[in-house]
Every structure is written in C-alpha cells, then in structure tokens.
Design a protein around this nucleic acid. Structure first.
Length: 265
DNA sequence: ACGAGCGCCTGTCGGC
DNA sequence: TGCCGACAGGCGCTCG
C-alpha cells in the first residue's frame, strides 16, 4: 500500500471532511449504489484506520469504508488538483486540499460503505498474530477438514491474510508439501506452521512487502524469497532444484527434497 | 465437503 | 517489429 512519506510530516486525512467523490470504475464500488454512496459519505470524517485480514477498514463518523486491494490495487494521497491517472478507480476529496485515490490497473479491487463492518468481515478466520491463533487451535482446525493444505491456508475464512507468496514461503519453512491433506498434518508440523506463518508475515512487513513487477511497488521482500518464483534455482537449505507446480490453480513453488510429497494423497 | 474450471481485467514478457 | 500465448501477490461462482 502506497501510504509512503510516512513520518510526522506525512499528510493526514484524519478528521477532515469528505467533500466529494469521483467513481471512475463503477464495479469498484460493491455497495451501496453510487448515488447512495456519495450521499452518505459526503461530510463524513475518517476517525481511525484499521485492517482485518486483507481489508482496509476506514472508521468514518457514522460508517465503515472498507477497501480490498486484490491483485493490483494501491492507494495514494494527492493534491485535489492532480488530474486522475489512467488507473484511478475511486477518489475521495477532503476539505484540506487533498484527495485519497484508489488506483487499480486490473480493476479487481472492491470498496464497501457499510454501517456494520461484520457484514463483510464477519466470516474471516483468525488473525495470525492474535492470541486466539495458537498451535492447538490450528491443529484442531486442520483436523476438522480434509483439504489440501495450501488452498486451506489461502482460504480467508480459515486464517486471514495469507496469499500465494506468503503461503508458499510458509510451507517451505515448515517443510510441508502444499498438497498434504490438512488432517494428515502432525501436531509437530502444526506447531511449525504457526511459527512459519508468523515469521514469514513479519519478514514481509519488515521489508514493506514485495515488489515483483510493474505494479507492486514499495518493498523489497522479493529479495528474501526462499522459494516463490525461484523455479530452476537451488534451494538455500539443501541445494536441490526448486520446482514449479500448480495447486488450486495457483502457481506453486516447492523444494522436492525439503517438502516431500505426502505418502497418501 | 472438496476441488477444478472459469470469469473478472490489464499489462508485461518471452518466443517466433 | 508485431502477434500470441502465458502469466500475474485474489476471490466468487458453478458444477460434479
């Protein structure tokens, strides 16, 4: 997310009033309809900004503005006078001369304006850094399904926040093959999963995320990938050659030695 | 319950 | 150079 220029002198939108809206791509706004959205959001102020899973949660005076960046979304604070770029999808104007813009080349990102954020966030699984997410709770949850571990970890109702890269990195550190059935995971592996998930996410956050092509700007986590995107290169742990397979229709990278295929599938 | 297939979109890259 | 397919950090839907 491009809220760069962090620091004390960073421009803030908190407690300024929204004075107008531009919606450049209708489908970006999931709910409500654009006229109702505009009527309701004008004169609102941002009181606080939070996050739940992959959703941004803007606490407004009377509503919640939720935003999911999906594949190619980004946000930007600009002067109101700046002309919209080719990929601007939604802008909110404030009474301090600034605008908040959602930019999204692939148009997959979505926004919601709701009274109760749980209507959107209510089905999300636990936060990986929360106290309720423990080796025990994970092990029990894994046992309650018989699913391929990779798609299960990417299921946002199972655990919130893991995407394709972080899941591959996690499974590599935990030495688990992505096709392993969740109910075949041992207690020890489950413990290792909790540790690996938290480690990989913390590394990603520390490095401001990854920038792996023209649209994902900002961080340099890609320089620390152990497995993702490294097909044909050597595993840093054992020296074997990294392979690319497909799991759940997603590009998946494994070390065939560190992550042996499950016996039963 | 689970997993595959597909749609939604635009842009980049590599091969010919 | 141009064309064409593969591919991209997500997710919701249908179908068997």
């Amino acid at each position: 997310m491009l809220l760069r220029n962090g620091g004390p002198e960073s421009p803030s939108l908190l407690n300024f009033e929204i004075t107008g809206v531009d919606l450049y791509w209708e489908r970006t706004l999931e709910t409500p309809a654009s006229d109702e959205f505009e009527r309701k959001i004008i004169s609102q102020q941002i009181k606080e900004i939070g996050r739940r899973g992959k959703f941004l949660n803007f606490f407004l005076s009377d509503y919640h503005f939720l935003l999911h960046l999906r594949m190619s979304g980004d946000v930007l604070i600009q002067p109101k006078s700046e002309p919209p770029g080719k990929h601007h999808r939604l802008s909110l104007y404030f009474n301090n001369g600034l605008k908040f813009s959602f930019i999204d080349p692939r148009k997959f990102g979505r926004a919601w304006l709701v009274t109760d954020p749980d209507t959107i966030l209510g089905n999300l699984g636990p936060e990986p850094f929360s106290e309720e997410f423990t080796p025990n709770s994970l092990y029990t949850a894994l046992k309650s399904h018989s699913r391929q571990i990779k798609p299960l970890l990417m299921d946002q109702t199972f655990i919130a926040g893991l995407g394709n890269i972080y899941t591959d990195e996690t499974l590599f550190y935990a030495k688990i093959h992505p096709l392993t059935k969740s109910d075949q995971i041992t207690e020890e592996q489950s413990n290792q999963l909790v540790e690996s998930i938290r480690f990989v996410l913390a590394e990603g956050i520390k490095n401001n995320g990854a920038s792996i092509d023209w649209v994902y700007r900002g961080g340099d986590f890609q320089n620390y990938f152990q497995i993702y995107g490294r097909k044909g290169q050597k595993c840093e742990v054992c020296g074997d050659v990294i392979e690319r397979i497909t799991v759940g229709q997603r590009s998946t990278f494994i070390c065939p030695t560190c992550q042996p295929e499950p016996a039963i599938n």
